[in-house]
Nucleic acid binder design. Structure first.
Length: 884
RNA sequence: GCGGAUGUGGCGGAAUUGGUAGACGCGCUAGACUUAGGAUCUAGUUCCUUCGGGAGUGUGGGUUCGAGUCCCUUCAUCCGCACCA
């Protein structure tokens, strides 16, 4: 009765493949459940143990839901455009599609070896012409859509009303006006350029220290013509949509933070001695009385006009330095404030005070208006700057809750107070504004009202999110269905001309100055229209995010060549009920695809406003690593264990065991293929789930696999052996445990608590082994519960129990609550809050009778001395507590 | 600095509404079976103990008959964002 997992797993994987056990039909009469994994980039190194974690979790849910009668969609595919294949092509000349195909095959083989029940007839690949045709089709939709602010809705570009003064100016103005409203537009953009990869990076791909996240080189600023998507138009919708989603709070917050909404006001400051004004954004218009100077960013358009002749040299020098700094010293963390006086003054509208205008790089051009009013009394950055350059500091807020020493300093303008307080110095007879004695909310409201009455400002909302840079100077991506004509006109291909495929190339190197390799494909590149006009195809390609923005929709109808997906099918399957993947996509992929989805929704192409109903992030799987006392990392193959501590094999130096990310340099990477070879796929699946809560970060412990392997062995040896069966009435204890297990495991799967459901199955198995014999009915029910977790082993035993069809098609057993009810309960009895003894009592006993029986117990008498206790607490079916 | 999360045995981790802290597994200890075992099975395993008990869920306090769970305080670790006006 040996557990031959290799044989068993091979047999059932072949069976599933031949019988298409996991094929999903579009049966609209049944309730649907769409469970989705974040599809992988098929890298050359294959799966790591992190992949099967999420995949196993969704597989268990999918199998369980199927057994519960749902029509389940559980597909897999490949996010296959991307740099590594292109890099490999540059090095070897191998076409990326060849590399991609090989990698996909390897991934598919590995995934099938884990017994994951995907419907392979629905496999998608973002690099297939039948797939990216529709990615291009969606791009055309984005191009032909504008966002109606009033309706908060994307609308077809034909419905955009052209204002009269624009149409009067002629065709070109009209075209420009339309272009300014399209969700996709082509324009000069200052972009991040990675000189190493020779590629443009999106803001999201540049790390804090100014390096490219992919290669670690410092990026540079560069001006290039680029495709951009106006995602900020959807900021409000993307923000609102989050509220109704069953997502981890952390992910929602990250998205909110990324969108970065803040409310406040825009205020115009007149520049003294010029007709111009300087506009600023502030979240605290109520602190206008405390604005003692202004600052513009070094890139501000008005800077030149503001700079007086006297200050020109200094300002020019500063701006040049700032530019250099933004390219080289971004990692410089010493945040000392620098800046230069422009020579100009503005008038503070609330008190007609003359205040100096400075230029400083702590003001960012990319946020708000690129200019600020500085309130050094109540803003730490402004305070720092004012102190450094001896600018006046005015307190307008008497601090709440500050000690007297601090209060005195704040009132004297010698310390900064950023919390709430009572307004002081916030009235001016000349301008008529008085907010003294108002609350913060009233102060803000009153000031905005005052500004609006005088046309000096208005309430405003600002977002951090910026237009999405949507093109890359790369070969291995979706080509844009775009032609740039010699007269400057831009046209998009007709739907009927899609897909636009990539040309064959000899060489895949990008140009050194931002030219895509596609620029070398002359015969592909140049086009002529019927009138002989010459045009050039767009040579940029779309970023890798494009394909993953909508893949969940293609699974619904993967072979459709008439439309991206059928409307009826989409209506049935959407939204995704459960989406599982890593937290690294918390912002980018999830925000981008929500954006696309909302546009498609506005255009009536999809039926839901949001794509993913419930999102779950699996925690990363780490591994043990070793470091010396100095913190130097030591590869695992140079470590040995002696008497419970770890030492360096060569030097004998004592080492500490730490937990770290798996990495080649630490030699602690676990390959799922190796685990499958030693313990089998069911053991790997079970261990990945038993390791800990799905969302927790947890280390891989080799010995733990043995634990679950042992469990499966015990299951096999017990349930696959007919001598362990008897016919007749099942032991009540087994029956109770079985029904408890069915209930517990079902509930745990719904809650994604797989670790505790495995514990429960272990408890049940241990009981059965202890009892020695069970009925076949008990075995059948238990094996169905185990099925989603260890499908190969379960199929094997299921078949031995004389079942003809796959266990995947069996129904989930129904538990009977009556087996779970007890007529007696073993009460823990606590005396003064400490457990002293236990007593078995009938559940339906009168409370007087319970009191009597408990107090008669010898241990109770010992503590009470026979006297009546002060209190006697009886919680039915829970606990008894006696206070003496 | 801001936001999110997490602190429980030697280790991974359990503990619906406050109600037996340490389930389940690893490891360890002892025993059985074995030529042998890093196989399998059985028993034990939070710590201290004068064997009556006592202490115990990062720290300190509070509410309660009763707190890992609720409230306040504080420390540590991880993740994300960060000169965002």
């Amino acid at each position: 009765m040996e557990y031959k997992f290799k044989e068993i797993e091979k047999r059932w994987q072949d069976y599933w493949e031949e019988n298409k056990t996991f094929r999903t039909e579009d049966d609209y009469t049944r309730p649907k459940f769409y469970v989705l994994d974040m599809f992988p980039y098929p890298s050359g190194s294959g799966l790591h143990v992190g992949h099967p974690e999420g995949y196993t979790a969704t597989d268990i849910v999918a199998r369980y839901k199927r057994m519960k009668g749902f029509n389940v969609l559980h597909p897999m595919g490949w996010d296959a455009f991307g740099l590594p294949a292109e890099q490999y092509a540059i090095e070897t000349g191998t076409h990326p599609s060849v590399t991609t195909q090989n990698n996909c095959e390897n991934f598919r083989r590995q995934i099938k070896a884990l017994g994951l029940g995907y419907d392979w007839d629905r496999e998608v690949n973002t690099t297939d012409r039948g797939y990216f045709k529709w990615t291009q089709w969606i791009f055309i939709r984005l191009y032909n859509t504008w966002f109606d602010e009033k309706q908060q809705k994307g609308r077809p570009i034909e419905e955009l009303e052209i204002p009269e003064h624009i149409s009067k100016e002629g065709k070109e103005s009209v075209q420009n006006f339309i272009a300014d409203h399209r969700l996709a537009y082509y324009d000069d953009a200052q972009v991040w350029w990675c000189p190493h990869c020779r590629i443009v990076c999106s803001n999201e791909e540049v790390l804090n220290d100014g390096t490219h996240e992919k290669c670690g080189s410092l990026v540079e600023r560069k001006n290039l013509k680029q495709w951009m998507l106006r995602i900020p138009h959807y900021a409000e919708r993307l923000l609102e949509g989050l509220d109704g989603l069953d997502w981890p709070e952390g992910v929602k917050d990250m998205q909110r933070n990324w969108i970065g909404r803040s409310t406040g006001a825009e205020v115009e400051f007149q520049i003294e001695g010029s007709g111009q004004s300087l506009r600023i954004f502030t979240t605290r218009p109520d602190t206008l009385f405390g604005a003692t100077y202004m600052v513009v960013s070094p890139e501000h358009l008005l800077l030149e006009a503001l700079t007086t002749d006297d200050q020109k040299d200094q300002v020019d020098k500063y701006v040049a330095q700032a530019r250099l700094k933004s390219e080289l010293d971004r990692s410089d963390l010493s945040r000392e404030k620098t800046g230069v006086f422009t020579g100009s003054y503005a008038i503070n509208p609330v008190n007609n005070q003359q205040i100096p205008i400075w230029v400083a790089d702590y003001v960012l051009m990319g946020y708000g208006t690129g200019a600020i009013m500085a309130v050094p009394g109540h803003d730490t950055r402004d305070f720092e700057f004012a102190t450094a350059f001896s600018l006046p500091i005015l307190c307008i807020m008497n601090p709440h809750g500050a000690d007297e020493e601090l209060r005195t300093l704040v009132l004297a303008g010698k310390a900064c107070w950023t919390e709430d307080g009572t307004y002081v110095n916030s009235v001016h007879a000349g301008t008529g504004l008085d907010i003294n004695n108002l609350s913060k909310e009233q102060g803000i409201a009153r000031t905005i009202e005052w500004l609006q009455e005088r046309g000096l400002g208005k309430s405003a909302i600002n977002y951090k999110i910026r237009d999405w840079l949507f093109s890359r100077q790369r070969y291995w991506g979706e080509p844009f269905p775009v032609i740039h004509w010699e007269d400057g006109e831009i046209t998009l291909l007709e739907d009927a001309d899609l897909p636009l495929e990539l040309p064959a190339l000899e060489r895949y190197e990008p140009g050194s100055h931002g030219e895509s390799p596609l620029a070398n494909a002359t015969s592909w590149l140049i086009v002529n229209d019927s009138k002989g006009r010459k045009g050039r195809r767009e040579t940029n390609t779309m970023p890798q995010w494009a394909g993953s923005c909508w893949y969940y929709l293609r699974y619904i109808d993967p072979d459709n060549d008439q439309e991206p997906f059928s409307k009826i099918k989409e209506n049935y399957w959407m939204p995704v009920d459960l989406y599982v993947g890593g937290a690294e996509h918390a912002v980018l992929h999830l925000l981008y695809s929500r954006f696309w989805h909302k546009v498609l929704y506005d255009l009536g192409i999809v039926s839901t406003d949001e794509p993913y109903n419930k999102l779950f992030n699996q925690g990363m799987i780490l591994a043990f690593a070793y470091e010396s006392k100095t913190g130097a990392k030591v590869p695992s193959d140079l470590v040995e264990e002696r008497d419970g501590s770890y030492v360096h094999t060569e030097t004998g130096e004592p080492l500490n065991q730490i937990v770290a990310k798996m990495s080649k340099s630490l030699k602690n990477v676990v390959n799922p293929d190796d685990v499958v070879a030693i313990y089998g796929a069911d053991s790997l699946r079970l261990y990945e789930m038993f390791l800990g809560p799905l969302d927790a970060v947890k280390p891989w412990v080799e010995n733990g696999v043995k634990g679950v392997y042992n469990f499966l062995n015990r299951v096999y040896k017990f349930f696959a052996d007919p001598t362990h069966y008897f016919t007749g009435d099942e032991d009540p204890e087994v029956l109770k445990s079985l029904h408890g297990t069915i209930k517990k495991v079902g509930g745990d799967i719904e809650a994604l608590h797989f670790n505790t459901s495995i514990s429960q199955m272990m408890i049940f198995t241990n009981l059965c082994i202890k009892k020695g014999k069970v009925t076949p009915e008990t075995a059948e029910a238990f094996i169905r519960v185990l099925g989603p977790f260890a499908p190969h082993l379960s199929e094997e035993i299921w078949q031995q129990l004389k079942n003809q069809s796959s266990i995947a098609e069996a129904s989930w057993p129904i538990y009977d609550e009556s087996f779970l009810q007890e007529d007696t309960h073993e009460y823990p009895v606590m005396i003064n809050g400490k457990l002293r003894f236990k007593i078995v009592l009938l559940i339906n006993l009168e409370s007087e009778e319970i009191r009597k029986q408990v107090l008669q117990h010898e241990t109770a008498v010992k503590w009470t001395g026979g006297a009546d206790p002060k209190r006697f607490i009886h919680v039915p079916s829970k606990i008894i507590n006696i206070v003496v």
